[in-house]
């Protein structure tokens, strides 16, 4: 009963790294292929976060050093805290800047928010905009 611990460690580490690289590749292809900004945003942030986390964790398992592991847990913690916040901020800015939605997107329940925001946007002025409030532009069908 003599298992080579070093070998087991290398196998675990390389499996983690390969999985991370796979998710990273999926995120990159998705960034290039998906039809509009919001679907891209919603596929990318997670793929990149999960992929990077798995790669970093794999290297941490290989080094197997407490000091290194502490730094790696810090990287994971910061990424998990910060990446959804960045995603929120970017998406919210995109909606306020009227980035186009995909043609198939169902916006029924979102109309109210758009209306409110349009009103707020024009609250300082005397005239309201002439076009109907729900006339957010839609992208052409790219498929």
């Amino acid at each position: 009963m003599n298992i080579d611990l070093h070998f087991v460690k290398e196998i675990i580490s390389s499996v983690l790294i390969l999985m991370g690289v796979f998710f990273m590749l999926v995120a990159a292809i998705g960034l290039l292929r998906l039809p509009d900004f919001y679907t891209r945003m919603s596929a990318i942030t997670k793929g990149a976060t999960l992929g990077m986390g798995l790669i970093v964790l794999g290297i941490g398992v290989y080094f197997n050093d407490p000091e290194m592991m502490f730094k790696i847990l810090a990287i994971l913690f910061f990424t998990i805290i910060t990446s959804p916040v960045a995603a929120h901020a970017i998406t919210r800015t995109a909606i306020h800047k009227k980035v186009t939605f995909w043609k198939k997107t169902n916006l029924e329940e979102f109309e109210e928010y758009l209306r409110e925001n349009r009103l707020k946007e024009y609250a300082g002025q005397k005239k309201y905009p002439k076009e109907p409030h729900n006339s957010i532009k839609r992208a052409d069908d790219t498929e």
Partner: peptide
């Protein structure tokens, strides 16, 4: 748009 570029920048940093 510029926002697409910011998204790509995010992915580049993770990479």
């Amino acid at each position: 748009s510029l926002l697409d570029r910011i998204t790509a920048f995010d992915l580049i940093v993770a990479n």
